[in-house]
Design a protein around this nucleic acid. Structure first.
Lengths: 193, 193
DNA sequence: GTCTATAGTAAGATAGAC
DNA sequence: GTCTATCTTACTATAGAC
């Protein structure tokens, strides 16, 4: 490359991500994204020829990588189910800043019927999250069907407590949810732990 | 009034509400709102001199009235705690069409720090919902603090299962949540029922 | 790779006829 | 009360200099 980039790729995606999470996809104008990244609009188009839609997709893909490294990997890693879930909640707590940050999967979600460039990616991320969580719960000693229900329950709780925290203007619901999540997902299991 | 309105006030608010719930506040352009209501933009401005922001506020106020009549009232009404919660879930199921419709309180929510014309109203609605639910749970036999935590938990579950249902493209998480909600909120209570 | 400048379009909002 | 027509602004996106 002839000239040096003013902002590293990772930092760039990070700023874009933060902006989408603050104001939503529709609310994130190129002027706002330009301000957030320190790059002029034309420079953003140089980096993302596909415009705002490509920015959304790359931000979502980066979120997918984060999910893999900080959620799916701990869940599939070493330790008891309880320890692995605790490792996950710890990561979620710092990622969402205790509930001060919203979730891209909520803010980039499209209407249930409509097509959107993000729909398939978001669905896969939710699916991967639920499946990884179900797998850990099943290991603690229950049927796959029960584990799946509990996992969906857990993901819903995380998402919903973020929504409620934003609505009430306090991080308490999110932190409380993270506190009790392992107990809830593993209730009446761990018989042989 | 000299000329007759092409669309009744209630129906008008209803169409606006549906549009905001489908595409979000930022995503709902006046062109889209015009198409959804059958009224031209200038006619919308005649009815809502404050423009889109006033539309959002009135839609939110109507949602508040709906919450009062279909959620808070049943929760404060006759019957056992379990019966009252069941009455509420039944209302929620039809309102959200089993999870096919998103929630205004999520789609009109603003960033946790930012000011927005909707923030106070949304906070009050969440607060009223949580308090009404907490009141019923406390009646079933627990301390106010425990009831409050469980109520926040319940509201988070409802919101989160709507988010998850939209993300996964299936209504199952929402229906499942409604199915088990009363059991969950009243677990280990109802000792004297 | 970043910029200024600008094209082209769609946004929110108003004026005034009927 | 609703409309057509229009204004102004903000948007996404591109062209071309450095």
């Amino acid at each position: 490359m002839a000239r040096k980039a003013l902002i590293e790729n990772d930092a760039l995606i990070d700023r874009l991500s933060a902006t989408f999470r603050e104001v939503g996809y529709e609310g994130a104008s190129l002027a706002l994204l330009s301000e957030a990244t320190g790059l002029k609009k034309a420079s953003l188009y140089h980096r993302f020829p596909g415009g705002k839609e490509q920015m959304g997709l790359e931000v979502l893909q980066e979120a997918g990588r984060w999910l893999g490294n900080h959620v799916l990997k701990p869940l599939a890693g070493e330790g008891t189910p309880r320890e692995r879930i605790a490792a996950m909640t710890s990561e979620l707590d710092s990622f969402y800043q205790g509930g001060r940050q919203a979730c891209l999967l909520n803010l980039l979600s499209s209407p249930i019927g409509e097509e959107s460039p993000f729909k398939a990616t978001i669905r896969q991320m939710f699916e991967a999250f639920v499946e990884a969580l179900a797998s850990v719960i099943a290991e603690a000693g229950c049927t796959p069907a029960v584990a799946r229900d509990r996992a969906e329950h857990g993901v819903a709780l995380i998402q919903g407590s973020l929504v409620l925290a934003r609505g009430l203007g306090t991080t308490k619901p999110f932190r409380k949810t993270l506190d009790v999540l392992a107990d809830e997902l593993l209730a009446d299991l761990e018989a042989r732990a």
